[in-house]
Simulated scan of single mutants.
Amino acid sequence: MSARQLRRPLALAIHGGAGVIERNSLGADAERAIHAELDRALDAGHAVLTTGGTALDAVEVAVALLEDSPYFNAGYGSVFTADGRHELDASIMDGHGRRAGAVAGLSTVRHPVRLARRVLEESPHVFLIGAGAEQYADTHSDIERVPNDWFATEARREQLRDAQHREQGAWQASQDLRGKYFGTVGAVALDSHGHVAAATSTGGMTNKRWGRVGDSPLIGAGTWADAHCAVSCTGWGEYYIRNAVAHDIAARVAYRGDRVRVATEDVILGEVPQHGGDGGAIAIDRDGNIALVLNTTGMYRGWVHPDGQRGTAIYRDA
């Protein structure tokens, strides 16, 4: 890598989902563990960038680590569907050339983000779902597989029991569970080539039915990257789909010249709640400016700025 490349800014941001996370509700041990998991993902993703790796590599590595943590709703620790199983979704997008890959309804793929990367690189398609996506995984021996119950944790099982106890019909349940039993993980990065990328992964919504899919695997809704910025979203997916949130943020940067933080705040604090939704988003532009914005009481998040300043946070007020 040339000296000129080394002088280019590097930056990374990650999230582990937004929702109702009240201060003191987690306990000190859980808070420490969550901060440690976020730091581990930051370390891994930033190491890729500092050794000349691409933004696409960095977001894949960071998200795959978050998928292995029981504290986030993606991979191991994913929420349960109504029938007591796990259905996982993910997407990844490279701002350089706008290549994208997405998968939904997975049941045995340990790291959905890695399969989404294979779709981006090796498939003529962008989005594979269900049995077809599993069959595509069968053709890649390096994609690790696990039994469906590998994703289960007792905390998620308790959430399912709670959701089903409160249920008064499928739509009423979704209203009652606002911000509580869904979430995602995601990452955005800027590399030494000046390129950005984004990735998002989720276990969906607790007690979901009928093959429900949210915004996380949908390019333009939960994930977006172009030449100007990269975005990964987290929240109530139906509202992120209806408002094409990830693309809306990026479009404000690209077409109107908004700063990335202003664009993210306008959408997450304005458009999304105006239409009844909640959640958050992380975004990064080609200069390394980072936005981490939420309209809920908490969002697991972490960042490394171009000057090396880094941190992690859980609650809205820090």
Score class of each variant (00 low, 15 high):
residue 181 Y to Q: 12
residue 181 Y to L: 11
residue 182 F to L: 14
residue 182 F to P: 00
residue 183 G to M: 08
residue 183 G to I: 04
residue 183 G to C: 01
residue 184 T to C: 04
residue 185 V to N: 02
residue 186 G to H: 09
residue 187 A to W: 06
residue 188 V to L: 03
residue 190 L to P: 14
residue 193 H to A: 14
residue 194 G to F: 10
residue 194 G to W: 10
residue 195 H to K: 00
residue 195 H to N: 13
residue 197 A to L: 11
residue 197 A to E: 11
residue 198 A to K: 09
residue 200 T to F: 02
residue 204 G to V: 03
residue 204 G to A: 02
residue 204 G to Y: 02
residue 205 M to Q: 01
residue 207 N to I: 02
residue 208 K to V: 04
residue 209 R to T: 13
residue 210 W to H: 11
residue 210 W to T: 01
residue 214 G to P: 11
residue 216 S to M: 05
residue 220 G to S: 11
residue 221 A to Y: 14
residue 221 A to W: 09
residue 221 A to E: 13
residue 222 G to S: 03
residue 222 G to R: 04
residue 224 W to D: 11
residue 225 A to E: 12
residue 225 A to Q: 12
residue 227 A to R: 14
residue 228 H to A: 11
residue 229 C to P: 14
residue 230 A to D: 08
residue 230 A to I: 07
residue 232 S to A: 14
residue 235 G to H: 09
residue 241 I to W: 07
residue 244 A to E: 06
residue 245 V to Q: 00
residue 247 H to R: 14
residue 254 A to W: 06
residue 254 A to N: 09
residue 254 A to G: 10
residue 255 Y to H: 14
residue 260 V to R: 06
residue 261 R to N: 05
residue 265 E to I: 01
residue 266 D to I: 00
residue 268 I to W: 08
residue 269 L to G: 04
residue 272 V to Y: 07
residue 272 V to L: 13
residue 274 Q to Y: 08
residue 276 G to K: 01
residue 276 G to D: 10
residue 277 G to C: 06
residue 279 G to S: 07
residue 280 G to Q: 03
residue 280 G to R: 03
